[in-house]
């Protein structure tokens, strides 16, 4: 709801031209609000990865605002996004890196980079990018619940809800852009959550790796079903969402099969 209001407000207040690129900043505002409501303002300096995430979400939000103002500087923003995402992962992995445990961090960084590449391929398809992020966030939430880690699931669901709020403005009729601003506002927090899951919870690494492939759903849609769906703006995101949903289901099945025991524990 917060994203729905913020995205719409930015779209109208900033004007239809500037508003198109700035509206995704509404997702970032909603995510910061979701974090603060659930976990309050994290202490400074932050110690735990979950506390660092609170600051990283703010950073991602500020970058999405900057990218929204200058969406034309794609060649600059993409390396910046890679650097910020990997740097954020390294910060989250700090205690593991200090212990000399590099493998999980490197695998997480690789998975995050792959997911970013997938979304960059779809930057001109805002509703499809949104559908892919939505499916990724739901997959991430499901994997975290099975881990179990409800706090990670909570933030992944917040990403899903905020992206859903954004999509209501740009689907079925395309109005907004996603671009690098959208990628940094949504995918970066998801990748950091994935890193936190991989590094510090019992989440299935294989399931997380599969979930990274959801980012390629728009690309796969164009590759496999391009002719079928290319004429309908409304249909493309649905097909993309379905492709992402199938990959998410595979990831969740793997996570379910890998979870340790099931004896009716609910909290």
């Amino acid at each position: 709801m917060a994203a729905l209001i913020c995205v719409g407000a930015l779209y109208f207040v900033a004007g239809t031209t500037r508003g198109k690129t700035l509206a995704v900043f509404g997702i970032a505002i909603a995510l910061v609000a979701a974090y603060w409501i659930a976990f309050s303002v994290p202490p400074f300096p932050p110690r735990a990865a979950s506390q660092k995430l609170g600051y990283l979400i703010v950073l991602a939000g500020l970058l999405s605002l900057l990218f929204g103002f200058r969406p034309d500087l794609v060649r600059i923003w993409r390396p910046v996004i890679f650097a910020v995402v990997i740097g954020g992962l390294a910060w989250i992995a700090e205690s593991k890196l200090k212990q000399g445990s590099y493998t999980t961090f490197l695998l997480t960084a690789f998975g995050g980079s792959v997911a970013l590449l997938g979304l960059f391929l779809a930057r001109d398809k805002p509703a499809e990018s949104g559908a892919a992020v939505l499916a990724s966030a739901l997959a991430m939430a499901g994997i975290a619940i099975l881990a179990p880690s409800a706090s990670i699931a909570h933030m992944a669901l917040a990403v899903a809800a905020a992206t859903g709020g954004y999509m209501l403005w740009t689907w079925p009729k395309p109005r907004l852009q996603f671009g690098e601003a959208g990628v940094v506002a949504t995918a970066a927090p998801l990748i950091w959550l994935g890193g936190q899951s991989a590094l510090y919870s019992n989440a299935s690494g294989t399931a997380l790796a599969v979930a990274c492939l959801i980012a390629f759903a728009p690309f796969v849609r164009g590759l496999v079903l391009g002719r079928v769906a290319s004429r309908s703006d409304a249909l493309r995101p649905i097909i993309t969402g379905c492709i992402g949903g199938v990959i998410a289901a595979v990831a969740l099945a793997i996570a379910y099969l890998n979870q340790s025991g099931n004896s009716g524990y609910g909290g």
Binding site: A48, A49, P148, Y200, S260, Y265
Partner: peptide, 20 residues
């Protein structure tokens, strides 16, 4: 005395044992 709950207590929700 409950494996699933112990796994949850070890997770980032509570004791975050991998990090701390």
């Amino acid at each position: 005395n409950h494996q699933k709950r112990d796994d949850h207590l070890r997770s980032p929700d509570f004791l975050n044992v991998e990090e701390f």
